[in-house]
């Protein structure tokens, strides 16, 4: 059983600590990305977001993690928009996603009262997160480094498929929201 792991739940292997680590790494990656681009004024924003995230996490404020995850996505997207270095931006996004996910997990543990085999659950969660992110980064890498030249008509068709598909997707998700 994973619950019999010798690592105690108070060790580094706790979702909350991992979320903090991921946030620091995400901020560092975004910082590096914008430093390369010489857009210095973004770095204080990244630091401010990290501080707000930590404050929210310490005070168990529910909205901070999701809000800052959205802002991190915008920072990553803006970096790409201003032709930034893709590697630190995509890695920053990866860590931001991990921080958001792990903070959500630690919050669920907190609300639950009693959690059975917390360590084993955290371990399995982390394993899946790593797998999903590894697959995500491979696919994202393919997107970034393989270029396909398409004309406007194809682009319009893909755009239309994407809009219709995503609209269906979102309406499906809305139905499943409780």
């Amino acid at each position: 059983m994973l619950s019999d792991l010798s690592i105690s739940s108070s060790s580094w292997f706790s979702p909350r600590k991992l979320a903090w680590m991921n946030l620091i790494l995400a901020s560092a990656a975004f910082g590096i990305g914008y430093t390369i681009q010489e857009l210095w004024y973004v770095i204080p924003v990244v630091l401010l977001l990290a501080i707000i995230w930590i404050w929210g996490n310490l005070r168990a404020v529910g909205w901070t993690a999701s809000t800052i995850f959205v802002l991190h996505t915008i920072i990553a997207a803006a970096g790409f928009y201003y032709s930034g270095e893709p590697l630190p931006l995509i890695i920053g996004m990866l860590f931001a996603l991990s921080a958001w996910d792990l903070s959500s997990l630690s919050r669920r543990f907190l609300i639950a009262g009693k959690t059975e085999h917390k360590l084993a659950q955290s371990y399995r969660h982390l394993r899946r997160l790593i797998l999903v992110e590894a697959l995500g980064i491979i696919l994202a890498g393919i997107t970034l480094f393989f270029h396909i030249d398409i004309n406007f008509n194809w682009l319009f068709l893909f755009g239309l498929i994407a809009v219709v598909g995503l609209s269906y997707g979102i309406s499906y998700l809305l139905k499943r929201v409780d």
Binding site: A77, F80, P86, G141, T143
Partner: peptide, 9 residues
Amino acid sequence: AGLIAIAIL
């Protein structure tokens, strides 16, 4: 492509 890459993630 960067934005699409983030979306794919």
